[in-house]
Amino acid sequence: MRLVQVAQRAEDLGRAAAFYADLLGSEPVATFDPPGLVFFDVGGVRLLLDNGAPSALVYVGVSDLEATLTRLRERGVEVVGEPHVIFTHEDATLGPAGTDEWMAFIKDSEGNTVGLVEQRVRT
């Protein structure tokens, strides 16, 4: 079994598609409007922006949390949770052993909360 798709609420598909294209660094793979659906491929899992979907909490892995937040702040994105260590990986059960999992939280163009996650080697 594997995760296939996550749906996220998008009241304005164009605005949401532009936000996620910028955040993910890739363009949508498919758009169907009507009925109002935009799809992104995120590492083999579909992110569906759908004006009929409920809000979901989506977490996106980033390689440099501070640089990502700087870029997003410059674009006017609201940061609702500053970077902090959320978990220390002693073993590889939930992430690479010997790393700290850093997270920050932003609001997307539709008001949904998005988690940004970086795995950092513990110093």
Rank of each mutant, 00 (worst) to 15 (best):
R9P: 03
I106P: 03
L13T: 08
R75P: 02
A21D: 06
A53F: 01
D22V: 00
R73Q: 11
D50E: 08
V62M: 08
R75A: 14
V85S: 02
H84I: 02
A30F: 15
P83C: 14
D41C: 07
E27N: 12
A17V: 07
D12H: 06
A53D: 09
H89V: 01
L57M: 10
A16N: 04
L65P: 02
G115S: 11
D12Q: 08
V45H: 03
E90N: 00
D22T: 05
A7W: 14
A17K: 11
F40E: 02
L37D: 06
P35T: 08
G95C: 06
V121W: 11
G98M: 08
M103C: 07
R15F: 00
F32R: 13
V38I: 08
S109W: 12
P35G: 10
A21F: 09
E66A: 15
F32T: 09
R2E: 15
E118Y: 06
V121K: 12
V4D: 15
P54T: 01
D22S: 07
V62C: 07
E66L: 05
A53N: 05
L69V: 13
T93Q: 08
A7T: 12
T68L: 01
G95N: 07
F105P: 00
W102I: 01
S26C: 14
P34Y: 11
T68Y: 02
G98R: 03
T70W: 05
A16M: 03
D50F: 04
